[in-house]
Design a protein around this nucleic acid. Sequence first.
DNA 1: TTCCGTGCAAACCCTTTGCACCTTT
DNA 2: AAAGGTGCAAAGGGTTTGCACGGAA
Lengths: 135, 135
Amino acid sequence: MKIGQRRSKQRELILEELRGVTSHPTADELYEMVRKRMPNISLGTVYRNLELLASHGVILKIETGGKNRFDGNSKIHPHLRCTNCGKVEDLDIEVKTEPVDEEKSRGFSITGCNIEYLGLCPDCINLMQDKQTVH
Amino acid sequence: MKIGQRRSKQRELILEELRGVTSHPTADELYEMVRKRMPNISLGTVYRNLELLASHGVILKIETGGKNRFDGNSKIHPHLRCTNCGKVEDLDIEVKTEPVDEEKSRGFSITGCNIEYLGLCPDCINLMQDKQTVH
DNA sequence: TTCCGTGCAAACCCTTTGCACCTTT
DNA sequence: AAAGGTGCAAAGGGTTTGCACGGAA
């Protein structure tokens, strides 16, 4: 599939780094990762390419209310998200959804689906316990 | 259930307005709604109370990457969200998920679940068609 | 009277964008 | 040579927050 009209080293590196990791990084985390191989890349370029890749369905943008995160695996799959630190992990369960027929979709043309479980990750659970025992 | 330590007219009005509507309003839309009945309320107060109500599970916060939206119905249910204008509607389908056992939850303590279908709403589909026929 | 909740406005922070330059085609 | 992509930094926009005041208990 064609992304943009010209290839760019920056875009290739960003996609490569994102695919090489399972951590669902934020734009600035990805920026730091790519910077190790291309020190002059700018944060704006990272944002522009992530947006471009996501809009073409090559990657997945995980919108969170805080910093958005990105997933190199664009196949629909459920996530686990920490409401405290924002960390996102893949969740290996099966989710069966009734097909959304025309009547139920209310005229929307559906292009994607997000399924996420929210909660506290182990690290944040520990942090909160520490806080409480301080008294 | 007890929200905060004292009741406030502002909080009651916000909850009342949100519950009286099925449109999943943003914080500033809710601000305008409440302002008709209490002109001196501030946007900051609306944000503070929405956050408080959501954290107590009284309402639902729909995080979108753009403006967040709120739902007076806190029961878990799927949504339809327009990726262009941000509009959110309820989606009346059934979603069956395999229970998330301890092994699969990776140590997370799960407190909620978001299920949303993404796409273009009828209005935005029309807007895009208009754009294209302009040539 | 106490002190939580509010109004106001400034600060914050993530993300987007304008512009001149560089790179791909 | 043409024009898309980038680097840089400033602007943008939603949300949060500090502070003094007002109101619930």
